[in-house]
Each structure stands twice: as structure tokens, then as C-alpha cells.
Design a protein around this nucleic acid. Structure first.
Length: 576
DNA sequence: GCCGTTTTCGGCCCGACTGTTTTCAGTCG
């Protein structure tokens, strides 16, 4: 996968073009930036795409035309892009890192290079220590302060964080704002509202007429480590968890427009705005306006979309993946909702590496409102997790049987395991033991670094065993930690379809696996899905919202998800 | 450099905030 390398080069080229200052440079810059965004968010491997469809396939990507396609091909073939190499020779400056300093963009960085020979962060630090910058025209002591602060912040920055960390942080701040008595309403917007699996910053909107007071309250919250920008309507702070958080104070009359605008995604908004323009309107964060600049709509998202001839769509869909067209045709799919989930199909207990007993897990599941869970402990090969052997499961299931009797049909624990798929594709328990179970999750936990073909065969063999109910976290990735293993997912989906095996949507915020685009790809096959939190302690079962968010981002409805079914139906399905 | 319900040329989002300015450029999202 070389997408990231190419995307990085294009964004660096955008910065290099910016300092050249030719007349139409700013559009060229935007073109390079857009291309970088397209490639960095692409699910497919650019190299695969090129091998299968040639330069034409590349040119079908949004923002990639002839010239950029040629540059991609050049990079794939030679590992270099000549124009980029030339530019770098001419400007031997680490713009990529320098511009990560808040307040320092390409233009200022270039001037620091021209006048002070600042080439990288180290040089910048030295120049700051010697107070060389404040002497330059257009720079002052405050610029030095700003860059110093920017450098410190950069060191403490984590970049993107898990939705599972970001969303609760944002919600906690929203809760405090709501209780402050200063706002009429506060809400989370941005990528967290869209339930993106990782978030680079947090966006919070508030409806209030007391802007200054709200900002005062906000910057003094204990979560805040630094103030980046402070204004009456927009304030940006750095949070202790390592991401920035924007707070915007909105006028009551434009709240809907602001919510729509700041929820994004950017690409979705571009499409919606284009439609507005086509209808003779103008759409921005303040509202929808007609040709004369008269406000047409702004109070609610629903109304704005309606005025544009579209259905309102859930934030999770707003990624410019065709939802705009469907909304215009009134053909948006119905998405699964958290309230429709009736059970958790992947949980662990103290018998292996969990922290709670099955009784405690059941108690919490019932509190959540579930009607059933599957208890799916690890198997013997996974020694690090105290995986159980056949005897262990036999003993454990007796306990579960007794518990089920006590529950008397009011709740059901499905007896299962998260059985390891071994290197050769065999399963980590004997057939008799597996056949005694209601729900078998097959997962890969070891030998991640196999060749794509071997890994695909390994998984397909496991699914062909006829002993598996669901493929657990099918790509094996851990967000921000480990890439997915090499595997031909189409072949896995085919095997799942052939064997009636469901695909897991692992709701654990560190996994989210399958992810949104994989779910879309898998939906083309006749397969079912199963949501599981992979809970290792009671409160992990609350992660279900992230799985549901991911399913919704994959445009999945309740009908294809096993654990939206009533208990009796699931029992019927499993006994087959 | 990209793109097409203004279609192969001529547009391309734009408002808030900051610092250094006496009216604006650079940065950011």
C-alpha cells in the first residue's frame, strides 16, 4: 500500500507551489491538496487500481486528472516524481513539519528560510531562542510567542485519536456547557458526529447569546491544556488528550445551517453546495440564501435539505459516497439504530482474559436492554489470553447452562467461543467441542505477516469447515496501531456467503472491523452481519454504539444484522 | 491542475481570527 506516500508527496508539493506565487497557484495548490485527500482516504490500493485499470482508472478518482495520474504512475514505476525532486532541490526546507506549527504556513516558513536559513523544526527552535524572528519585517514578539507555543503543542500532539476517546471527551464538554446555564443548546458536530473511526479534532457548536461568557467558561475547563485561537464566535483549544477542540457560538437563527456546515464532510458539503448553486441559492454556515441574498432557510438541517430537494440524511452517510444523489431521489436506505440491537455477539469473561464473571456480564447486558449475549472466550492457542481447551469449555458451559435455567427464558446466553484460526486454517478446538456450541466466532490472532494468498486460503479454509457462525474482526487491524493483514476480502466474503457465515462488525473502538467501506463491499454478497463489542469487562458492552455507527457508515439496515432479531428468531437461525 | 445542469475554457468557497498593520496578508478549517 503506497497511498500514503503518494498523498504525502502531493500535499508537500502543494506547499512548495504555494511559495512560488505564480498567478493561478492557489488553484493548483487546491488541486494538489484535493488529490492528496482523495488518495489518503482511498480504501483501495492505488497500485492495485493502476495494475488493473491503468492510468484511466486513476483518472476516475475525484481530483485526479491527466497530469496527476501521470505523476502517480511515475512514482509507482520509479519511486520518484521528477518535478517533486526538482522542487525539493530548489527549496531544501522541511515544509511538511514546519507548517505543522500552528500559525506557520508555507509563506512564512519560506520567508524564515530566505532570511534566516530556517530549514526544519530544529532551526526554528534555535532562531526562536536567539530571538531572531522578531526582527523580521511582518514578524514581532507575538509571532515568536505563537511559534514557541506551536512547537510545544506539536510535541504534545497525538494527531488523530480514536472515536472511542474523542467522542466521550466531546460529549463530556457538551454536558458541562449544557449545565453552565450559558447556552441554550450544545452539540457535537464534525467527524465525531459522523462517527468516523478516528478523529483529528473535535467540533462543538453552541446556541447562545452570551458568546464571551461561553468562551470564558470553555477555555477554563480542566480538559483544556492550551488556547490556540480565542474569538467571540470561534475558539480553538488544545485538549489534554492531544487533539484540538473548536467551539463555535451560533446565532439561534442559523443553528441548522451551522450544524449542517460543521458536520461535514467537506466533500459532502461541496456536493450539497453545488446543488444549491444550481438552484440559484447560496449555502454557507449562516443559512441558505436566494439570489438577492434573502434568507431562505437556516433553522434546521431538515429544512435546508428539504429546500434543496433532498431528504435529510444521517450524519454517518455524509461522506460523498453517493448519498446526495439518493437523497435527491428520495431513496436513502433505512439505517440500523442502536435501539434495534437486542444482543451482543462477542463477549469475554474471567474464564479467559476478561475482567468480569458471566453473571456480571449478563447483569450489565440486561441493564443495557439486551435480550441475549454470546459468551465467546478465547481458545487454547492464545495463551496470552489464558485461552481454554475443550475440557475448559465443557466445564464453563455447565455453568452457563445453569445460569440460562435461572434466567428462565427472560434472557439467553449463547454458548460460544472466539476460536483461533490457526496458521494452516484449522480451528483451535476439536469438532465435537465446536459442535456443542451455539455461536462460534472464528478469529485470526497469530501469524499476521503471511502472504496475501496464504492468509486468504487460511481464512477461507476455516469458513469452509462448516463449524463457524461468524468471522471475527475480519481484517485484523488495530486502529492507530496496526494495519490490517494482507487478505483478499472478496474471497473471504464469497466463502462467507457460500457457508452462511456472518461477518462481524467488531464494535470495539480500537478495532471497528469490518469498517464502513468494507461493509459496503461485503453488502454486495448475500451475507449477514453480527455486531459484537468484544467486551472484556462489563462497561465495554457500551461500545455497541461505535459498531452501530460503523454499520450506519456502511449504509447497513437492521434487516441484515443478526442481533437486531428477536431472541426466538436468533435461536431459530442458530439451530439450523 | 481539475472539471463540466455556466461543459473543452474559464472558473475554482469563504469567513473568522491573528499579528502587524493604518487597510491587510497569512493561516486555518
Amino acid at each position: 500500500m503506497r497511498n500514503k506516500e503518494i498523498a504525502d508527496i502531493f500535499s508537500e508539493m502543494a506547499q512548495l507551489i504555494e511559495i512560488e506565487d505564480e498567478p493561478n497557484a492557489r488553484f493548483k495548490i487546491r488541486a494538489y491538496q484535493k488529490a492528496a485527500l482523495t488518495i489518503s482516504t482511498l480504501q483501495e490500493d492505488v497500485e492495485d487500481l493502476y495494475e488493473k485499470g491503468g492510468p484511466k482508472a486513476l483518472m476516475e478518482l475525484p481530483g485526479i486528472g491527466q497530469a496527476l495520474a501521470e505523476k502517480i504512475v511515475e512514482y509507482l514505476k520509479t519511486g520518484k516524481i521528477k518535478k517533486f525532486e526538482q522542487m525539493k532541490k530548489e527549496y531544501p526546507v522541511d515544509f511538511k513539519n514546519l507548517t505543522r506549527v500552528s500559525g506557520l504556513g508555507p509563506k512564512k516558513a519560506f520567508r524564515l528560510y530566505k532570511e534566516l536559513k530556517v530549514r526544519d523544526l530544529e532551526d526554528l527552535k534555535n532562531a526562536l531562542e536567539k530571538h531572531k524572528i522578531q526582527g523580521l519585517e511582518g514578524f514581532g514578539t507575538r509571532s515568536e510567542e505563537q511559534f514557541k507555543k506551536g512547537l510545544i503543542m506539536l510535541e504534545g500532539q497525538k494527531g488523530r485519536i480514536l472515536l472511542g476517546d474523542g467522542l466521550p471527551a466531546a460529549e463530556s464538554i457538551v454536558g458541562k456547557l449544557n449545565k453552565s446555564g450559558l447556552v441554550e443548546e450544545a452539540m457535537v458536530a464534525g467527524s465525531a458526529r459522523r462517527m468516523r473511526e478516528t478523529v483529528g479534532d473535535l467540533d462543538i457548536l453552541v446556541l447562545s447569546s452570551k458568546g464571551e461568557k461561553v468562551m470564558d467558561f470553555f477555555v477554563k475547563l480542566p480538559e483544556v491544556s492550551d488556547i490556540v485561537v480565542r474569538g467571540p464566535t470561534k475558539t480553538t483549544v488544545m485538549l489534554r488528550i492531544g487533539v484540538t477542540c473548536d467551539l463555535r457560538v451560533i446565532e439561534p437563527n442559523s443553528f441548522g445551517a451551522a450544524v449542517q456546515y460543521f458536520t461535514g464532510s467537506k466533500d459532502h458539503n461541496v456536493q450539497v453546495r453545488t446543488i444549491a448553486i444550481g438552484m440559484g441559492y447560496k449555502l454557507n454556515e449562516y443559512g441558505l440564501f436566494d439570489r438577492k441574498g434573502k434568507l431562505v432557510s437556516a433553522r434546521s438541517e431538515h429544512d435546508i435539505y428539504k429546500k434543496l430537494g433532498m431528504e435529510w440524511m444521517p450524519p454517518e452517510m455524509r461522506e460523498a459516497r453517493g448519498e446526495v444523489k439518493l437523497a435527491q431521489q428520495g431513496k436513502l436506505p433505512k439505517l440500523v439504530e442502536l435501539a434495534e440491537v437486542k444482543g451482543d455477539m462477542h463477549t469475554h469473561t474471567v474464564e479467559t482474559d476478561g475482567a468480569n464473571t458471566i453473571e456480571e456480564m449478563v447483569e450489565e447486558a440486561r441493564r443495557i436492554g439486551h435480550k441475549y449475549i454470546a459468551t465467546t472466550n478465547h481458545t487454547k492457542s492464545l495463551q496470552i489470553a489464558k485461552g481454554m481447551n475443550e475440557k475448559g469449555f465443557e466445564r464453563y458451559f455447565k455453568k452457563v447452562d445453569a445460569l440460562n435455567r435461572r434466567l428462565d427464558g427472560k434472557f439467553r446466553v449463547f454458548k460460544g467461543a472466539e476460536v483461533d484460526v490457526l496458521k494452516d486454517g484449522s480451528l483451535d478446538l476439536d469438532d465435537k467441542c465446536l459442535k456443542s456450541m451455539d455461536w462460534v466466532v472464528a478469529s485470526v490472532h497469530m501469524n499476521y505477516n503471511m502472504e496475501k494468498d496464504a492468509m486468504t486460503k487460511r481464512i477461507v479454509k476455516a469458513l469452509d469447515s462448516g463449524l463457524v457462525n461468524v468471522m471475527g474482526h475480519p481484517t485484523g487491524r488495530e486502529l492507530l496501531v496496526r494495519e490490517q493483514y494482507a487478505v483478499d476480502l472478496d474471497k473471504v466474503f464469497e466463502a462467507a456467503e457460500r457457508n452462511g457465515v456472518a461477518l462481524e462488525i467488531n464494535a470495539n473502538p480500537q478495532r471497528m472491523d469490518l469498517n464502513d467501506t468494507n461493509i459496503m463491499a461485503a453488502s454486495k454478497y448475500k451475507v449477514r452481519f453480527a455486531l459484537g463489542t468484544d467486551a472484556h469487562r462489563t462497561f465495554h458492552m457500551r461500545f455497541m454504539r461505535y459498531g452501530v455507527g460503523t454499520a450506519r457508515r456502511g449504509w447497513l439496515g437492521p434487516d441484515r444484522i443478526i442481533n437486531t432479531m428477536e431472541l426466538r428468531k436468533v435461536e431459530g437461525l442458530i439451530s439450523r
